[in-house]
Write a protein that binds this DNA or RNA. Structure first.
Lengths: 215, 215
DNA sequence: GCTACATTGTTTTATATTTAACAATTTGTA
DNA sequence: TACAAATTGTTAAATATAAAACAATGTAGC
């Protein structure tokens, strides 16, 4: 059993899911072994980077041979703890919350959504799909009774920080933040931001840049 | 009128929307001027980085004074071309497509969604919200008749690349990619990826790392 | 108008990340 | 068994990014 140093730089960590995806594709194609060179050609990266990235976590390859595809997949899944199922609650049952709920439900991932919460009492009437929607006032109580790993924040910007404080108060250790709010760094709490609106601004920046170049 | 060198590194560009957000908040609070030092304290960054980032695009501040909040907002909006309205079509009217449509509709952004497309004929019956849903076979024809700036890809992974090729064939210049597919770099086409699933893997990685540290 | 202070724009230094180079090791073949 | 080819793990060099330092410039008070 491998243990990893866990001090890999974030750019490296963020590339791991991509390696995983390409390796799964190779597996489906029936490819059993791959060299860093071949993989780099597929992915449009460099062989050197692939080798160095993987070596932050261990030596998964064999000299003169390359990497065994299925073994490497397992190794990366271990590193990312993809096999574990993470119990999630969604805070905010509006457009965004429903969207994320639907999206995740149809993804064959390791995020299991237990319940949704909303401040709007009318939303708690509905049973969103198969999921119960509770009033936010019952959040603390719920978290005492159920083990929850991840809170998925889907509230409006104005209540983002408050919602984060509430789930942290309830003992959450990880927040997947889809709001436009900037959550304060908190000791011991993992925060992963998905800044969709910022992403669009980057796109329009690149687009306008491209337009200028065209002229 | 300012013109920018447009050769700023991507990490800098990706920070601009964050500056914009914080400045808008300051404006709401009635703050008219801000120094890089003060702003860095709010944002949890460094004054040096803020000054250097902004100086890739021009000197927006004044020595001994700082930055005029509203002027700087306008400058950043110019850089990101936030004022322009971008005409978008959504490819894929499933869970993800609907989700994004709802999310964007309720965001006061500069993305205007004109129509949705789907291969599933049954989906074309519905009028999603106020938006028409066309069969994908009519995509080329639609793009000939309407000026479209951005294609928002919300199809399953398996049809991601094909969908991209279709909109590129129709003359699109920018793709906002919400699929898990890795789209090939294409000369002259701007591609901005929102890899939600990868984001979750990073979160679980950090979470498991934290768990290990706790023991 | 002069002086002390504040704060930028810019240069220099430090750090982080990526790429290249290469020695070590395994595979496969004769 | 010996040798050539392949390919890793790892070290070194190059590049990119961030932070610190500082000179230039403007502000504000007296």
């Amino acid at each position: 059993m491998q243990t990893f140093a866990a001090n890999a730089p974030m750019p490296v960590v963020r590339r791991l899911p991509k390696y995983h995806k390409y390796l799964k594709e190779l597996l489906e194609e029936g490819v059993t072994k791959i060299s860093s060179k071949e993989l780099s050609l597929r992915m449009g990266s460099t062989a050197s980077q692939i080798r160095q990235d993987l070596n932050y976590f261990g030596g998964f390859g064999q000299q003169g041979y390359g990497y065994n595809v299925s073994e490497l997949i397992v190794a990366i899944e271990d590193i990312l703890s993809i096999h574990e199922v993470y119990r999630c609650i969604i805070i905010g049952a509006g457009n965004l919350g429903k969207a994320i709920r639907n999206y995740i439900a149809n993804l064959d991932g390791n995020a299991k959504i237990l319940a949704m919460f909303d401040v709007d009492a009318s939303k708690t009437q509905e049973k969103e799909g198969q999921l119960p929607v509770y009033h936010t006032s019952r959040l603390k109580e719920y978290m005492r009774g159920h083990e929850v790993d991840v809170a998925i924040l889907c509230v409006p910007k104005s209540s983002g920080v408050r919602a984060a404080e509430e789930v942290i108060g309830g003992g959450i250790r990880a927040i997947w933040n889809f709001t436009t709010a900037d959550l304060p760094q908190t000791e011991g709490i993992v925060i992963e931001n998905v800044a969709i609106n910022e992403s669009f601004y980057v796109l329009t920046y690149l687009l306008s840049e491209k337009m200028q170049n065209k002229t």
